[in-house]
Amino acid sequence: MTARETILAALRASGAEPVPAPPHPVPVKQGDPVARFLESVTAVGGQSYRVPDLAALAAGVAKLPAWSSPRRVSLVAGIPGGTVDLEAVDDPHELADLDVAAIPGELGVAENGAVWLKGESLGPHRAVFVIPEHLVLVVNAADIVNDMQEAYGRITLPRPGYGVFVSGPSKTADIEQSLVIGAHGARSCAVFVVG
């Protein structure tokens, strides 16, 4: 028998009585999701900004100290000023010295400041959300949901087979429980809510 057959046979023979799948609890809504989202982003170590429209978004991003560094990627239609064209990059290793990337988010989650980035928003290289020194994420106010359960109600199968929730910058507390921002991924994460 192959390993697959052996394992599946053992599982069939395990004699576990059928247990029905339980319903999921209905989360209690806690206040204005946009306001809560902005607070959560700060709480997880990011910077949060609310801007009324795309013009204000572009102005806000231009003012970020991180955006003044030379190697910039913009995947957001409303943010001009990118200096690196991902389509012209063959190998993600060439992004090792990327300073900052601006990426559009599909939705934001009020309870934890997470922003859902779907695979096709990352352009040709998945690494773009984790390799730069700084990250700029953009999400529409209308796309803020209360919690993760609501988020998965709106997420369909990630295509092309990839998606990530990013909640604030990269961090670690592995040395004596001291929180350090910027372990392997972005050292800062600015999140703009538009509208």
Partner: peptide
Amino acid sequence: LADLGVFLRLLARSATGQPVSSYTTHFHA
């Protein structure tokens, strides 16, 4: 997929008190 909504609300809070981990990556290809 929807079951993740339940588990991810519990996991990081139980582990470190964080509302969610910084990166929750979904690999489907």
